[in-house]
Design a binder for these strands. Structure first.
Length: 268
DNA sequence: GCCCAGGGAATCG
DNA sequence: CGATTCCATGGG
């Protein structure tokens, strides 16, 4: 069991895992979740200013797990920048402990292809079945299947997922990633407009899915996914657009605004 | 039956 | 270009 000190105002496990950026963590009890990352089943608990990790070593934490949870970033600095705007400051108070996770690229891309014109419970169900059918068994929970595995399948093979019209999009994305037509390094490093248009070569990937992939799965904090909620929120809260100082971390601002729009009752 | 769901492709004018 | 329509599936 690994311990990690963190103020609950600076990181909330529940807010971070349940805010719609990730679909892979199951709540077991209050402030306790189980999931699989890098083919390791992991249990995370938060209490009394501490996080407890079961299933990872200290080396795992140093190498990738702390980063996966976004705990390597200085959010007090990000919040300070965004709080120069009063509306942003208010939105942040509704979920002070949200962090943008740094999820695996392919898992993020595939998950947000599945998310299109869909609701969160069903997205989660489809992803669960995807992992059970094509992932590896990790002590009763399943890893997210590699692109190379899905690239060999036909869309009919995905019928058990009941993902509907998205099945052929998943296959196309898996093939392009497996063949190297979509290169993660380019998505991470190229100018954002170029990275976005590369992702949009995949069938079923438009601006929204591309920006979710870049923000949640490629470390691009300037990506700014706009869905139906964000459209409403931006019209009502930021009719002139985001303030200029927020743009390099627009994606972080987006997550506070998205959560505020859905939960505050102030956005109709 | 109707509506909607963290959209996008195809097909119009 | 912008505006519509269709896409599978499941829950309210």
């Amino acid at each position: 069991m690994i311990e990690f000190d963190v103020d609950k105002l600076d990181f909330s496990l529940g807010e971070t895992l349940s805010c719609g950026q990730c679909f892979r963590w199951k709540p077991i009890e209050e402030n306790k979740y189980i999931g699989v990352v890098n083919k390791k089943q992991i249990c995370i608990t938060q209490s009394d200013g501490k996080l407890f990790f079961d299933g990872v070593t200290q080396k795992d934490c140093d190498d990738w797990f702390i980063e996966y949870l976004g705990l390597d970033e200085d959010y007090s600095a990000y919040k300070r920048i965004l709080s120069q705007d009063n509306t942003m400051k208010l939105a942040i108070t509704y979920a002070q402990g949200i962090r943008i996770m740094k999820q695996p690229f392919w898992e993020t891309l595939c998950s947000f292809i599945i998310s299109q014109n869909n609701n969160i419970p069903r997205i989660t169900g489809i992803i669960d079945r995807l992992c059970e059918c094509f992932g590896e068994n990790c002590d009763g929970f399943y890893s997210f299947p590699e692109a190379e595995v899905l690239a060999e399948k036909a869309s009919d093979d995905l019928a058990p997922l009941r993902s509907g019209f998205r099945a052929r999009y998943i296959i196309d994305a898996a093939q392009k990633v497996a063949r190297g037509e979509i290169d993660e390094a380019i998505i991470r490093n190229a100018p954002i407009d170029e990275a976005r248009s590369v992702l949009m070569k995949i069938k079923g990937v438009g601006p929204k899915v591309a920006d979710c992939t870049m923000l949640f799965g490629a470390g691009r904090y300037e990506a700014f996914p706009v869905d139906v909620w964000m459209k409403k929120a931006m019209t009502q809260l930021f009719p002139c657009g985001l303030p200029e100082f927020a743009k390099p971390i627009a994606g972080i601002a987006q997550q506070y605004i998205f959560h505020y729009a859905r939960t505050s009752g102030e956005v109709e």
